[in-house]
Amino acid sequence: MPLAYLSDYSWDDVIPIPQDDGGENPLAPIAYQDDYKTATGYLRAVMSFEEVSERALQLTADLIFMNPAHYTVWTYRARLLFALKKDLEEELIWVEEVGRQFPKNYQIWNHREVIVDKYDNPSRELPFIEEMLELDSKNYHVWSYRQWLVRRFDLWITELAYTDRMIEDDVRNNSAWNHRFFAVFGKGDDVSQSIIDDEIDYAESAILKAPQNASAWNYLLGVLKCAKRPVSEIEEFCNDLAAVQTTEHSVDVDTDQITSARALEVLAEIYDSRDEVDKAADAWTLLAEKYDPIRENYWKFKKSQAIHRLAATA
């Protein structure tokens, strides 16, 4: 017999409903701790007729601390909060406690969205998000929640500066780079060419600090593509980083000077787009054999694909 559920409220009138685990030999049964087993028994009981009460609300809180991934309990809690007309600010403070204890949990962000949407006031949000990103600067749920918040309350104005700061802290934080892309393009407005120029400069100066940084390279190429500008625009930039020495039909690099395999990859794409397949093939061979051998198969495939295409058009 599991222990009594310890609560400030009386539960004497409720008969807990035990879990039906399918008889003698259940599959993947979890050795629940007694308090969890007892509390879920009461949860099933009050959920079966959707009791709307303070004690039910307290029960959801207790259960969430035992298992924050319990999805129906969150839904029940949200409905209780609204039905009991609870102070939503208090709820947000409570959710912050849960968030600190379970930073990787999915459900709290979903719940917080429901509450903040109803509360219609974002004032606690940015500081809490900030705190959570200090714990884990790449927390996917937190960044997604921030995007929702920015759209819901039209908070676009501060976002670019925020990503400046996050990228300065860690130039390889891909989440921060992604958020920057959202801040520039996510609103759906036309983005002026001068903003595009600024973003290209921004990404290039970040690449100069860390020439192999995939996040900055992907951002740079993403901005060019989104603005429908040709990749050849950054050819000079790549020439320097890859330290290429080219002739009309061949490419080599200065082994002592090359700092970025990604620059060499971009050059290969640029040559290929101009049908300079000999040069592209050289660049891919260098990547396969020397500068990015983990992707040897891929670079060789790119090369053979270009050669086949050339043969087919000839």
Binding site: R172, N173, Q212, N213, S215
Partner: peptide, 30 residues
């Protein structure tokens, strides 16, 4: 630590790395 995974930062300087195990990350720089 460091905050980002940067194993790919300087293979260019590290010499041959071809024998090392390599798994997959879920996002860039992780």
């Amino acid at each position: 630590e460091p905050a980002s995974f940067s194993s790919s930062e300087s293979p260019l300087l590290r010499g041959p790395v071809v024998d090392r195990p390599a798994g997959f990350s879920g996002r860039s720089n992780k």
